[in-house]
Design a protein around this nucleic acid. Sequence first.
DNA 1: TGCCCGATTAACT
DNA 2: GTTAATCGGGCAA
Length: 195
Amino acid sequence: MPKRLTRSFFSRSVHEVAPDLIGATLLFDGVGGRLVEVEAYHQTDPASHSYGGPTARNAVMFGPPGFVYVYRSYGIHWCLNFVCEPKGTASAVLIRAIEPTTDLAVMRRRRGVTDERLLCSGPGRLCEALRITDRQYGLALDAPPFELFASSGPVEVIAGPRIGLTKAAEKPWRYGEKGSRFLSKPFPAATTVLN
DNA sequence: TGCCCGATTAACT
DNA sequence: GTTAATCGGGCAA
């Protein structure tokens, strides 16, 4: 059986946690798959929702690590984040793409598409497929209905610029599995290979 | 209270 | 390649 990740996994620098999450398996109510793309956000980072200090929306980011931050994007979509670092650092990892493994039929129904690559390739898409909304705001990642398992083998991780930002767009804090078909977008050709 | 705009997506040309 | 959809957060006034 794969090893479960507990909340202590997240009590490290967000720039260590983010690449380490690639290849891990996330399930919500038994639906999900392998994490293949994430982005790191830190309080000192102008692109982070925590940059301006605590508010009602970002409050969970200022709490202990290993909990879920969910926000509304463009008034339409939900986006899922994992809070990282010791309490007060207000950093988080945005989950951007999942390689779907279970349950494909459920995800196809929720998404209204059949193509595997359109089920969970994008932060808004994966929340629709897993049925993540603000009702999950503040839930712990190491307790039901969430399940999180470490990668079962080595993974080749690449890093590049984050997607869709106007501030701090040059920071290479997007991490993905090299060669994955399930990335929300390809990484630029000149991309750093980790490991 | 009003205004601007975004860690997106799908449906266009 | 471009753009509409859609609305709450954050800040100016």
